[in-house]
Design a protein around this nucleic acid. Structure first.
Lengths: 193, 193
DNA sequence: TGTCAACTTTACATCGTGTCAAGCGGTTCG
DNA sequence: CGAACCGCTTGACACGATGTAAAGTTGACA
């Protein structure tokens, strides 16, 4: 509860964030400790293991960047298509912020069940946003007839995946703006023709 | 050159394939050795490291399943759109075969440069197929005007990624047939409206 | 009989995670 | 003042997986 403890915990999260987002793959516990300026063991006094630290880091980013608030804005849109656009805009703006953490967390999925669950959980939350946008379009009678709400949600979820962002922006060198424009078009075409 | 050596090498590849495709994450060198019926060290007499073994396994799968031949068939199509359909059909049928190996290889990307290069190489080969299909559509004058050949290739490449297959088929429980139908529609819409 | 190849057994180095225990320098409280 | 406590350090170690090294076994073939 003391302010020094809070400070160290926050410093750890900020540092972890920075390291992960610096594109440096293979960020080890010792790397983080060194960057924070504490011993590796002190890290374990604050976070019991690497998975917990990564998860805490994503939550930290969320609160700093107010992702919930940003996604919530899309609910204000009048029409289904506007809502879809707003949701995509919010989500797509969020991806670059969490990309480094996302890579690290996904890399742990294979070996760490807790990490897998944490990442899954976040993706399910995003999926709820997809489902809401799909429902709004359906309510407007604009959902393509051959799509159910579920399959449409799955499809939108797939289109908006972090992996797809990585492929176009990181691997193919697209600008964030090009990526967003293309993905907006693609998503609208996929759902409502 | 002796037939016993070839037999063991082949048995190793077949076993590795089977283990990876059984959905069993975290296939260790010792697991493979045990399944083959040889010592862990004997494995290293045939393949110097895990990355090499995984790469050899994908090449083995390729030759057994004749992926090159199957993808080549798409070149016979008359129209650009037929060509795209044929290419997607061939590739999409291939994904389930290599999925397990793909997961293992991608999991190594973070730590092993050789594994990353191998996976990259295979994806680039697939990308060439995408580029050829895009060119065929463009030659028919059916490529959407706002798309260049390069961006269209990137987009198709993204749509056909193994990760997207995983999301819909494995995570969302789609059948292979549903997946293929949806992805065919999506790809055609994305490129030529 | 001797050699060679394929394989075994045993042992060890390395790297990163995570655990354990003892100690140390402040602050705070009785 | 002194005891307790907190945040941290130092150092050592277990574990699991990969990969290396070396000596020994087995069977085929000449």
């Amino acid at each position: 509860m003391s302010s020094t403890q809070t400070d160290t915990k926050t410093r750890i999260l900020d540092t972890t964030w920075k390291l992960l987002e610096s594109g440096n793959k293979n960020v080890r516990m010792s790397d983080i400790a060194k960057a924070v300026g504490i011993s590796r063991q002190a890290l374990y006094l604050h976070y019991p293991n690497r998975a917990d630290l990564l998860i805490a880091t994503t939550r930290h980013i969320d609160s700093v960047k107010d992702i919930d608030g940003r996604l919530a804005e899309s609910r204000a849109a009048k029409s289904g298509k506007d809502r879809l656009s707003a949701f995509i805009r919010a989500w797509v703006g969020y991806i670059p912020e969490i990309h480094g953490t996302s890579v690290a967390l996904r890399a742990m999925q294979a070996t760490d069940a807790e990490a897998a669950a944490a990442w899954n959980d976040r993706m399910q939350a995003m999926r709820h946003g997809c489902a809401a946008a799909v429902k709004a379009i359906k309510d407007d009678g604009l959902l393509l007839p051959h799509l159910t709400e579920d399959t449409a949600t799955d499809l939108l979820w797939m289109i908006l995946s972090v992996e797809n962002w990585e492929r176009l922006v990181r691997d193919c060198g697209w600008s964030q703006a090009d990526y967003e424009a293309t993905i907006q078009t693609l998503a609208h075409k996929a759902l409502s023709g």
